[in-house]
Protein backbone atom coordinates (compact mmCIF):
# COMPACT_ATOMS: atom_id res chain seq x y z
CA UNK A 1 0.00 0.00 0.00
CA UNK A 2 1.05 3.49 -0.64
CA UNK A 3 2.93 5.36 2.02
CA UNK A 4 1.57 8.53 0.57
CA UNK A 5 -2.06 7.73 1.33
CA UNK A 6 -3.46 10.80 2.97
CA UNK A 7 -4.31 10.34 6.57
CA UNK A 8 -8.01 10.46 7.39
CA UNK A 9 -8.68 10.30 3.68
CA UNK A 10 -12.38 9.98 2.92
CA UNK A 11 -12.84 8.81 -0.69
CA UNK A 12 -15.80 9.65 -2.84
CA UNK A 13 -17.29 6.80 -4.74
CA UNK A 14 -19.80 7.00 -7.55
CA UNK A 15 -22.25 4.14 -7.93
CA UNK A 16 -24.06 3.64 -11.22
CA UNK A 17 -27.07 1.61 -10.15
CA UNK A 18 -29.61 0.05 -12.46
CA UNK A 19 -33.15 1.10 -11.71
CA UNK A 20 -34.60 -2.40 -11.37
CA UNK A 21 -32.16 -4.28 -9.18
CA UNK A 22 -29.31 -2.40 -7.57
CA UNK A 23 -31.17 0.88 -7.00
CA UNK A 24 -33.92 -1.19 -5.36
CA UNK A 25 -31.26 -3.08 -3.40
CA UNK A 26 -29.85 0.22 -2.14
CA UNK A 27 -33.38 1.30 -1.23
CA UNK A 28 -33.81 -1.95 0.69
CA UNK A 29 -30.57 -1.31 2.55
CA UNK A 30 -32.17 2.00 3.51
CA UNK A 31 -35.53 0.64 4.62
CA UNK A 32 -33.65 -2.07 6.56
CA UNK A 33 -31.47 0.66 8.16
CA UNK A 34 -28.28 -1.17 7.15
CA UNK A 35 -25.50 1.29 7.96
CA UNK A 36 -22.53 1.91 5.67
CA UNK A 37 -19.98 4.73 5.41
CA UNK A 38 -21.38 7.89 3.75
CA UNK A 39 -18.78 7.97 0.97
CA UNK A 40 -20.96 6.68 -1.87
CA UNK A 41 -23.28 8.60 -4.20
CA UNK A 42 -25.79 6.62 -6.23
CA UNK A 43 -26.61 7.67 -9.80
CA UNK A 44 -29.69 5.99 -11.22
CA UNK A 45 -29.66 4.56 -14.77
CA UNK A 46 -32.34 2.39 -16.37
CA UNK A 47 -29.98 -0.52 -16.91
CA UNK A 48 -26.31 -1.17 -16.19
CA UNK A 49 -25.86 -1.44 -19.96
CA UNK A 50 -26.73 2.26 -20.22
CA UNK A 51 -23.42 3.09 -18.52
CA UNK A 52 -21.04 4.14 -21.23
CA UNK A 53 -17.45 3.38 -20.25
CA UNK A 54 -16.81 7.01 -21.13
CA UNK A 55 -18.92 8.02 -18.12
CA UNK A 56 -16.60 6.03 -15.90
CA UNK A 57 -13.46 7.47 -17.46
CA UNK A 58 -14.88 10.97 -17.20
CA UNK A 59 -15.47 10.46 -13.48
CA UNK A 60 -11.91 9.34 -12.98
CA UNK A 61 -10.67 12.19 -15.08
CA UNK A 62 -12.53 14.61 -12.83
CA UNK A 63 -10.99 13.05 -9.78
CA UNK A 64 -13.46 10.54 -8.39
CA UNK A 65 -11.75 8.01 -6.14
CA UNK A 66 -13.77 4.98 -7.12
CA UNK A 67 -16.60 3.87 -9.40
CA UNK A 68 -18.99 0.96 -8.98
CA UNK A 69 -21.26 -0.19 -11.78
CA UNK A 70 -23.95 -2.47 -10.44
CA UNK A 71 -26.92 -4.17 -12.03
CA UNK A 72 -29.12 -7.22 -11.94
CA UNK A 73 -27.61 -10.67 -11.74
CA UNK A 74 -26.81 -12.19 -15.12
CA UNK A 75 -30.00 -13.82 -16.36
CA UNK A 76 -32.21 -11.52 -14.28
CA UNK A 77 -31.89 -8.36 -16.36
CA UNK A 78 -35.14 -6.47 -16.64
CA UNK A 79 -34.26 -5.94 -20.28
CA UNK A 80 -33.28 -9.61 -20.70
CA UNK A 81 -29.73 -9.16 -21.93
CA UNK A 82 -28.46 -5.74 -20.82
CA UNK A 83 -26.13 -6.85 -18.06
CA UNK A 84 -24.38 -9.30 -20.38
CA UNK A 85 -23.17 -6.28 -22.37
CA UNK A 86 -22.15 -4.59 -19.14
CA UNK A 87 -20.15 -7.62 -18.13
CA UNK A 88 -18.22 -7.76 -21.39
CA UNK A 89 -17.65 -4.04 -21.70
CA UNK A 90 -16.30 -3.56 -18.23
CA UNK A 91 -14.06 -6.58 -18.35
CA UNK A 92 -12.28 -4.77 -21.18
CA UNK A 93 -12.37 -1.41 -19.44
CA UNK A 94 -10.70 -2.84 -16.36
CA UNK A 95 -7.77 -3.94 -18.49
CA UNK A 96 -7.66 -0.62 -20.26
CA UNK A 97 -7.52 1.21 -16.94
CA UNK A 98 -4.45 -0.73 -15.93
CA UNK A 99 -2.94 0.26 -19.23
CA UNK A 100 -3.80 3.90 -18.65
CA UNK A 101 -2.29 3.87 -15.21
CA UNK A 102 -5.49 4.07 -13.18
CA UNK A 103 -5.44 1.48 -10.46
CA UNK A 104 -8.19 -0.90 -11.58
CA UNK A 105 -9.02 -1.64 -7.95
CA UNK A 106 -10.81 1.69 -8.02
CA UNK A 107 -13.38 0.23 -10.34
CA UNK A 108 -15.76 -2.65 -9.82
CA UNK A 109 -18.73 -4.26 -11.51
CA UNK A 110 -21.10 -6.10 -9.21
CA UNK A 111 -24.50 -7.80 -9.42
CA UNK A 112 -26.84 -6.76 -6.64
CA UNK A 113 -30.49 -7.69 -6.84
CA UNK A 114 -33.45 -5.79 -5.43
CA UNK A 115 -33.57 -8.29 -2.57
CA UNK A 116 -29.91 -7.90 -1.66
CA UNK A 117 -29.84 -4.91 0.67
CA UNK A 118 -27.18 -6.58 2.82
CA UNK A 119 -25.08 -7.24 -0.26
CA UNK A 120 -25.25 -3.58 -1.27
CA UNK A 121 -24.09 -2.65 2.21
CA UNK A 122 -21.26 -5.18 2.08
CA UNK A 123 -20.09 -4.31 -1.43
CA UNK A 124 -19.92 -0.56 -0.88
CA UNK A 125 -18.30 -0.94 2.56
CA UNK A 126 -15.60 -3.20 1.16
CA UNK A 127 -15.04 -0.91 -1.75
CA UNK A 128 -14.75 2.18 0.42
CA UNK A 129 -12.16 0.44 2.58
CA UNK A 130 -10.23 -0.74 -0.43
CA UNK A 131 -10.15 2.69 -2.05
CA UNK A 132 -9.24 4.29 1.28
CA UNK A 133 -6.16 2.09 1.38
CA UNK A 134 -5.20 3.00 -2.18
CA UNK A 135 -5.45 6.71 -1.47
CA UNK A 136 -6.87 9.62 -3.41
CA UNK A 137 -7.06 9.60 -7.17
CA UNK A 138 -5.21 12.58 -8.48
CA UNK A 139 -3.75 11.03 -11.55
CA UNK A 140 -6.19 12.25 -14.14
CA UNK A 141 -7.77 15.14 -12.41
CA UNK A 142 -7.96 18.13 -14.65
CA UNK A 143 -6.16 20.13 -12.01
CA UNK A 144 -3.78 17.37 -10.99
CA UNK A 145 -0.61 18.78 -9.56
CA UNK A 146 2.14 16.80 -11.17
CA UNK A 147 4.48 16.24 -8.35
CA UNK A 148 7.06 13.56 -7.94
CA UNK A 149 5.65 12.45 -4.63
CA UNK A 150 2.33 11.67 -6.25
CA UNK A 151 3.93 8.92 -8.29
CA UNK A 152 3.30 5.80 -6.37
CA UNK A 153 4.18 2.22 -6.90
CA UNK A 154 2.60 -0.81 -5.44
CA UNK A 155 5.84 -2.42 -4.40
Amino acid sequence: MSNNAVENFEPKILVFACNWCTYAGADLAGTSRLQYPPNVRVLRVPCSCRVNPQFVLRAFQRGIDGVLVAGCHPGDCHYTTGNYYTRRRFLLITRMMDYMGIDSRRFHTRWISGAEGPKFQQVVTEMINEVKAIGPNDKFRDDAKIEVKAVETNE
Binding site: L43, V45, P46, C47, C49, R50, V51, N52, P53, F55, R58, H78, Y79, T81, G82, Y85, R89
Partner: peptide
Protein backbone atom coordinates in the same frame (compact mmCIF):
# COMPACT_ATOMS: atom_id res chain seq x y z
CA UNK B 1 -38.34 -0.18 -23.64
CA UNK B 2 -35.56 2.31 -22.90
CA UNK B 3 -32.72 0.12 -21.63
CA UNK B 4 -30.04 2.12 -23.41
CA UNK B 5 -27.97 -0.81 -24.70
CA UNK B 6 -27.84 0.79 -28.15
CA UNK B 7 -26.53 4.11 -26.85
CA UNK B 8 -23.31 2.56 -25.62
CA UNK B 9 -22.88 0.40 -28.67
CA UNK B 10 -23.19 3.38 -30.99
CA UNK B 11 -19.80 4.42 -32.32
CA UNK B 12 -20.83 7.83 -33.48
CA UNK B 13 -22.82 8.71 -30.38
CA UNK B 14 -25.91 9.26 -32.47
CA UNK B 15 -28.11 7.02 -30.35
CA UNK B 16 -29.29 8.61 -27.16
CA UNK B 17 -31.78 7.67 -24.49
CA UNK B 18 -34.35 10.31 -23.69
CA UNK B 19 -34.43 11.40 -20.05
CA UNK B 20 -31.12 9.56 -19.52
CA UNK B 21 -29.09 11.30 -22.21
CA UNK B 22 -25.32 11.33 -22.29
CA UNK B 23 -25.45 15.01 -21.40
CA UNK B 24 -27.72 14.41 -18.41
CA UNK B 25 -25.65 11.60 -16.95
CA UNK B 26 -22.39 13.46 -17.52
Amino acid sequence: QGCGACTVTCRSGSANLKHFTNAQIL
